[in-house]
Design a protein around this nucleic acid. Structure first.
Lengths: 170, 170
DNA sequence: CTTGGAATGTCAACAAAGCTGACGTATTGT
DNA sequence: ACAATACGTCAGCTTTGTTGACATTCCAAG
């Protein structure tokens, strides 16, 4: 019996067939390539990688964040983050300042130069996202975000939600 | 004039504000972690990586595909794919057979053992996708796919479309 | 029938970015 | 005083990507 055509299957459940799920999985895989393609090109010119982009993005989103906080958002080890962070600090894109209340902490900020690169990267990424949103329409965008949020791990979703309502002045 | 608050901006364009786009970008980043988390756990036990998963997935999807075809779908170099493919062949998960019409080509198939791993991986990934789909609902799923498709590079979308209507017997 | 080009494979070397484990230092809180 | 925390760093390893060079095999065109 061909899948997805079971007579006793409610009409409302047809979107949960293996076939539909498989398309979603492949769409996710292929779309992620497009998602990262434009920033990757810019980063390659400057000898940076995706890891630098992620650090820059979240430092921009949460100026003054600590290393530990960034660590849990990015989900990597401190050694891995440190390597990236060190080059960004050496290159003058990120400023690391000792905490005032707790001097063990380092607070991270983008310098002017860092903010400039952030803008270049996010402009490129937003351009593609905007084109996709425009092509798909507002209703599709709502669904897009709903599915993505439901796909996250609980801990990850917590980070996402925490940042959701923190608009960045620009 | 700050974007997103222009009085003459049509109501229908509010979903294209930088703020909305930023949320979409972060949702994409966080969701991709969840997307790969379950297969990654299974793969780690077996000393394989994501690259092995991708190869297995697309060999399953297109049995008998050539190395070159797989290369263009995955978007990596032949050296990189070859390393992964070699281990899969050595481990008896993938069979490589010389082409009949063109003996330069190798046709790739999953062995029984390879198909078993494929099933384990895709079951895990589908479980999460199914939960996300169920939570978001059918209308959201349509939008989800529309946005993802619009996000792909043209060449990538071509691969995606080519595989779209090729259901796999299971 | 020869030869050029295509498809494949392989060797070597390298880089990005993740990981573990160990250790040092400064600081904080108990 | 002492344990825990935050951070940085060294060393070493893994996966997965990259180039470049070169050999082999084979099809197809001249």
């Amino acid at each position: 019996m061909p899948e997805g055509s079971s007579p006793q299957m409610g009409q409302s459940l047809l979107f949960l067939t293996d076939e539909q799920l498989r398309k979603g999985i492949e769409a996710m895989f292929f779309a992620y390539r497009g998602f990262t393609a434009d920033p990757d090109r810019i980063l390659a010119e400057k000898s940076y990688g995706r890891a630098h982009h992620r650090a820059i993005h979240f430092i921009h989103r949460s100026p003054g964040t600590t290393v530990n906080n960034l660590l849990s958002i990015l989900g990597v080890t401190k050694q891995s983050l440190n390597r990236v962070l060190r080059t960004l600090i050496e290159d003058g894109l990120v400023a690391s300042t000792v905490g005032t209340r707790d001097k063990r902490e380092r607070h991270l900020h983008l310098t002017q130069e860092g903010a400039a690169l952030e803008r270049e990267l996010s402009d490129a990424q937003r351009d593609r996202m905007r084109a996709a949103y425009r092509a798909a329409g507002p209703a599709a965008v709502v669904g897009f975000r709903q599915v993505l949020e439901a796909m996250m791990d609980d801990e990850t979703r917590h980070h996402y939600e925490a940042m959701k309502e923190k608009p960045n002045e620009r």
